[in-house]
Amino acid sequence: MTSIDKILIANRGEIAVRVIRACRELGIQSVAVYSEADAHSLPVHLADEAICIGPANARESYLNIPAIISAALLSGAQAIHPGYGFLSENADFSEVCKEHGLAFIGPPPDVLARFHDKAATRMAMKQIGVPVISGSDGPVRGVAEALRIAEAIGYPVMLKAKAGGGGRGMRKATSPSELQRLWPQAASEAKASFGDDGIYVERCLEGVRHVEAQIAVDESGRGICLGERECSTQPCVSVIATSGRSSSLSIRRTGRTSSR
């Protein structure tokens, strides 16, 4: 049981404001960190303390692990809330927090590391009996193997970066010739964006609904699902509308969850 009375928020914008609001309601002190470009921002104004961690470029501020850890230790915070984006899914950051006795408000490093690799995540889900879209078992070694898998599962297929996110390193192929043409693009974009050119293949589902579920798990391993959200308009052009109840779906629970 870690007693938390001061939290550093390693983020900016609306999510930093959101976390500060929760802290204030709980009687927890909040520490905002900010780049030089955000000196006159709302999180800086609302937080109990604010510490500048570097210049505008996120690499030197919001992604600067030593500066953020120093700010946390300097301020006496016991925990860091990473918000979303930036360092929120960074296993190394979660590990460094732990090493410095700071609680990372999010999953432990090993869970973040596992979910960082989407091909490995697919395999882990499959092993515990969660249905996944048909596709390759792990990353594909080359275009020849990708063609074989695509033939077996049927076109169209998606080529996806195993370290990917935000749609980068992702290509849709509707035929073998297109797959051959797009493979190097997907691999080089994955390498450039994520430093990892591992690609896996998955059947592309069209005209479907994108529905998300929110899961929370405590230290004992007990988990709950907090309803579902319809996010179908999300992938395109940053135009997003989501709703609390999908009008088409009732989630059937498998009755079995991961040991985590």
């Binding site: 049981m1 929760a22 004992s220 007990r222």
Partner: peptide
């Protein structure tokens, strides 16, 4: 529910 408060509670080692 307030999910950020729930996150903070879980990080403090509280159970759901």
């Amino acid at each position: 529910m307030d999910l950020v408060k729930e996150q903070i509670a879980l990080a403090s080692g509280e159970l759901l």
